[in-house]
Amino acid sequence: MSTVALPGVEAAASAGGPRRRLSPWQAWGLVLLAPYVAVFLVFVLYPVGYGLWLARHPQSYVQLFADPVFAGSVVNTLIFLIVGINLKMAVALFLSGFFVTARPWIRWLSVLFILPWAVPSIPTILSIRFMLNPEWGVVNQVIFRLTGADGPNWLNDRWIALSMAMLVHIWKSLPFWTMILIAGRLAIPGELYEAASVDGASVWQRFRFITWPSLSTLYLTSAILSMIWTLGDFNSVYLLTGGGPADLTHVLATLGIRYLRLDQVDLAMATIVSALPLVLPLVYFMMKRLSR
């Protein structure tokens, strides 16, 4: 180093003040980053830390696990995730194949098909809620007219109500995942299919050997992301059943909010903490995927 310590360097260094001073570029970098950092610290880090601190007592968990509603919610959440997501993604995969078929009327249909995703959930879920009304709802009225018998009391039975909530969730988010898978399918080079046709591949073989290998990573990522979002889906259950009948259809998302409304914040946080073993691996997986 001493060989390059020329007079000019020292003059320049001393003229420029202490070398550690930030350049305007670095300074503006910090200034422009600051708003988000502030948002994150104030509205994510502190709340989450505070919330975890509130949920620090083992006795909150004892109380939580003793609550039968909690056990029911865990079961409901797992059913929601396992059945709901697999059903949704399988249908989305199927429909994405339908929608990439080149027909003018299918293009039009695809524009309509986005509607459930493009409109807010509240009015549509409430609309479905009324459709399922045992006395006045259109569903039971049609059943009565066709069979002469009364339809079921849709939202008053735990399993039927939970199934309906799942259907509402699927109705709302199916368009989004179908769109994602359509994008994935459109990215597959057409020559692959042409070559396969020449080789005499059947529809199933084309799916098995061309579509699926190209789409499987996207499908898996979508399923994981969908799981995370489904865990946070409050509306589908709350607006349809309100957790009833008799708190039997709660999922963890609505249960946490229920405790919060009952001013039992420690239980609310404990509910969330008990979901972390499921959430964190999924989040970790997604972060690895996206931050590559």
Partner: peptide
């Protein structure tokens, strides 16, 4: 990293 560059006789190492 090391050394100096001068333009028109002025060392510009620290000049934006």
């Amino acid at each position: 990293t090391a050394g100096t560059i001068a333009i028109d006789g002025r060392v510009v190492n620290q000049v934006d």
